[in-house]
Amino acid sequence: MRLGRIIAKAVLAFAGFVAVFPLLWTALNSLKNSVDIITRVPRLVFTPTLANISYILGRDSVITGLYNSVVACGTAVLIGVVLGLPAAYAVARYPNRWAGDIQFFVLSLRFLPPVAVAIPLMVIWLQLGLYDTLPALIVTYSLLTISVIMWLAIPAFQGVPKEIEEAAFVDGYGAYAVFWRIALPVAARSLIGAVAFSFVLVWNEFLIALMLSSSNAKTLPIVASELSQQGMNVPWGILNASVVLLSLPPLLFLGVLSGFLNSVFRQKKT
């Protein structure tokens, strides 16, 4: 039994190592000169350089990509919040015979293969003259954000104790006031998790952005992947720096999302 526990702990420690080490290594490589990266034996000790990072931040394509990503994802998430949260609240609190069907419809949007949506949308946006523009990307991403936020917010609103809302009705609050003043603030923690999740999802999205942009509306993932299309001739340090830049925003939400997970499962327990 003793030996078993030691092995088990070793396996866990190894898994923890595998989880973060590749990423840390990439971050380290982004601080290296090419001489220190292209080595048969990985080098831990090296003279750090900020050249890669400043090169990346100095490129117009990267800055445009960053801007496009922030605007497209930010706006789509905002639309998702405005349209998704109220709908989720209504489904959670005013269940009718369609509630199950609505939930299934929202989930089923996730079954659609992205390529099946992207091809027709490309043709549609081309015909409307909106191909390769941010509005086209925002509208397309809204489908993602609305459905994901709605799907995750329904259980969050159901987790709000009914008694609080009923007490508010007794106090003379109207249905809308209860949503604004009671349900939203009480469920806020889980809702922020749901919204953060939808942001990470669209920030990471690749296929749709690839098909819907050719030059002006490229998002950061596309720009990053193009850097490597020039083959491995691009210095690895620069590629690594672009990967780090691309990965930072989702990682900022690590705390929020792990808190969200915890609150989901605490609800289940009680």
Binding site: L12, A15, G16, A19, V20, P22, L23, W25, T26, N29, V200, W203, N204, F206, P221, A224, S225, S228, W236, L239, N240, V243, L246, S247, P250, L251, F253, L254, L257, S258, L261
Partner: peptide, 25 residues
């Protein structure tokens, strides 16, 4: 708690990032 935090990190990465990280690796 520590492992939970570490294990969530990879899934948050954009797929493109994860792909590059491992392509190098």
């Amino acid at each position: 708690n520590l492992y939970c935090l570490l294990f969530i990190i990879p899934v948050l990465l954009p797929r493109v990032s994860a792909a590059f990280v491992w392509k190098f690796a």
